[in-house]
Design a protein around this nucleic acid. Structure first.
Lengths: 410, 410
DNA sequence: GACCTCATAGAACACGTTTACTGTCCGGAG
DNA sequence: CTCCGGACAGTAAACGTGTTCTATGAGGTC
């Protein structure tokens, strides 16, 4: 992007476009289009089908060519700079394009064999910072490669996810990036695998970002982060501080992300020989509201605990509010940690100890990995493979040694 | 969306696609397809040009038609359900599509005259919740209308903005939505207006969302919020509490958004007959970092003030930290307000008093307004017009009566 | 002057769908 | 029996661009 690129965006081809319209003078020359040998006897002008809702038809290569007095091939070559064109001719063509306000039709171009230069990303919610950061990485990397980014939100509905993949396939996206944990449902998995094969057959890639692989033979690539390891590390941090009864709060129960985080949590417990208490694992949503409501309930009639491991920072924010309302101080009375290291973690008071995930980098890698094999014709490169990024603990102010075992209130 | 729609997404046409490949059994019945009379004598297979990077060519309508023993027209009609097809024929075609894993080519479809069903949104940064909420509204409304959403981030660079508009025009987006304040530069304005005309000439709409109109004759539509009014209201709130020296902090100086907010702020001051002190207006970035740094500097050697009006909630978060580090309590020592009512406002302690903007609703309205005229053929509807949404004050805990005039520390 | 090469430019087809016309078959009305 | 209309299905022409193959003239060499 730092080179003398001709456009403000990635490597988009240089194009020009100009003022709306000069006098539509048809440029007198009675061109040599001699009677299509039929259809002329119809006598009627027969208004051409309108593009969509247009009032004025858009200029095409043919119009430009006519005005510049050249063939369409020459116009195409002027645009793409992939074939020698005399300077004078080039100038005339560019002037004509400006005159007509010509804008190339990306659909026609894509149909003619040039890549559509699009990558799609499917997430649960644009507003959720976890997804937003990944989306930013994807968008930036895509733009750097001269591509546009199609964003879809599923609101967590697997059916919509499948439908969006299909829509992106229809648009011949270079890559489709699926972000976030997935449900374990077998039927869904099968459907997903079928889509992956179809995409692959067409030369596109399905990228699984922060989600377990579909299996060795499914034609997908993956970018993961060390979910289990991060959970292990942060639990271990709590254990080191002396906590023995840790409440795990939030995260949709069926989700792979939840399972992995709980797995890491349990491994840390087991390593210290601590028992696992089912009452201390309270999955739910990934929302602030859930964190607040469930925490309030558990403070009233839940098990004893001295620390809370919230499934993510948003849940932690809700839990923090519940704690505050119950008159509990963090970390003096209860320690609290989150996951994801999203901006809110720095705004909470005390600042939240959490696990950092290289979200934006994951997004970038997702498109890089997807497009790696496609550019060259080396289909020897393994069509499947997984890139794994590290996570690390971020220690802030929300953890302290337990003062004593917490008793249920009231 | 609540009707018995056939797909998980908006009103997308029903399409099918199936398992990769059964035995390619050609379905025995020796149908009456007697030799296409050409192309068979070529004898040679002649590998067609590859689509992009594919190893296996994608199935097309022709393939499906051949396998089902019908014409391509019939296949098209089966897909689009816009023309009667016998049940038996339909079944055969659908089976063929499943067999071949056929996925329609959206580019070809768009080229043939069907709308591409795409809306584009251009924002400064996906991660910024201000933009993220608007993007969510756009995305949801677009999806509800069976459209896909193209998202681009400019990082605040007007050149990239222009380039993105061009890219979306090439893709024949139904609407291009420009979000957020704009710079006052005249050359930029002219460029933008030219793009608007080109877009309009092609039947697309340029929507200005939270940004001033380009003028009466520019073919754009707009969705605004009452920026000036919100600033007036919140300043008046501070004045009512007894504050007389209010620091306005942050917001890029050239930006229309900044100008409007400052205008409202000043109007409130003037209404009470208070003087405007230039030293009390400190524009800058819209970032947390700016809020923190500048607030720190001003506490050291800035003018006296008893309240801070941060240009938005993010800046307020930075300012809050600076205040905290300087040992100042909010609101006892200094009152603090923000703008936008973004989630962080609820996480700050004390919870931030701010101005609520119906961000998601703006996004929804933006696409609604853009697509309103286009669906019907009533081009009598004014091609230009602006929808204005209200803002309102949200009172939380960050404002109190001034204890006394604040003196500079040290 | 004949011949070859190089630099350009044009003609024509491919890309994959949709759709306006044109038929064809069949049942029922006159 | 003929005529008519409805229900289907096929033919072929767009849609706008990229690209391959071919053509033409200029300039140089022998």
């Amino acid at each position: 992007m730092s080179g003398g690129s001709e456009d403000a965006i990635g490597s988009a081809c240089g194009r020009v476009a100009g003022r709306v319209a000069g006098p539509a003078a048809q440029t007198g020359d009675q061109d040599g289009r001699e009677d299509h040998d039929d259809r002329d006897d119809q006598g009627e002008v027969r208004m051409p089908r309108q593009g969509s809702t247009a009032n004025g038809r858009r200029a095409t290569v043919v119009d430009v060519a006519r005005l510049a007095g050249v063939s369409t091939a020459t116009v195409s070559r002027v645009m793409n700079r992939n074939y020698p064109v005399a300077a004078a001719t080039r100038e005339r063509v560019e002037e004509a394009m400006r005159e007509l306000g010509y804008v190339v039709n990306a659909h026609a171009r894509a149909l003619a064999g040039v890549s559509g230069r699009t990558v799609g990303i499917i997430i649960s919610d644009v507003v959720d910072p976890f997804y937003a950061y990944i989306a930013r990485g994807v968008e930036r990397e895509a733009t750097a490669g001269g591509r546009l980014c199609l964003v879809c939100s599923t609101q967590g509905d697997p059916q919509r996810e499948l439908a969006f993949i299909e829509l992106m396939h229809e648009r011949r996206a270079d890559a489709v990036i699926l972000v976030g944990g997935s449900v374990a449902d077998r039927g869904y998995r099968t459907e997903l695998e079928r889509r992956a094969r179809e995409l692959d057959a067409g030369g596109s890639k399905l990228v699984l970002c922060g989600r377990p692989s579909l299996g060795k033979d499914a034609p997908t690539v993956g970018v993961e982060y060390d979910n289990e390891g991060g959970a292990f590390a942060i639990t271990d941090h709590l254990l080191t501080e002396g906590h023995e009864r840790i409440l795990y709060l939030g995260g949709p129960p069926g989700l792979s992300t939840t399972k992995e985080r709980i797995a890491g949590h349990r491994r840390a417990l087991e390593q210290r020989g601590l028992p696992r208490d089912p009452a201390l694992v309270q999955p739910g949503a990934f929302s602030r509201q859930f964190g607040h409501r469930r925490m309030t309930e558990l403070l009233r009639d839940g098990p004893e605990f001295t620390a809370v491991f919230a499934a993510n920072d948003i849940v932690a924010a809700g839990a923090a509010q519940a704690l505050e309302e119950a008159g509990m101080r963090v970390p003096q009375d209860v320690s609290l940690v989150g996951y994801d290291d999203v901006p809110v973690a720095q705004e909470l008071r005390p600042r939240l100890t959490t696990v950092h995930i290289p979200l934006e980098e994951m997004g970038r890698q997702a498109v890089r990995v997807a497009l790696a094999g496609g550019d060259e014709d080396d289909w020897r490169a393994p069509t499947t493979g997984t890139l794994r990024l590290g996570t690390h603990l971020v220690v802030r102010d929300s953890v302290a040694a337990p003062r004593g075992v917490r008793r249920r209130r009231g």
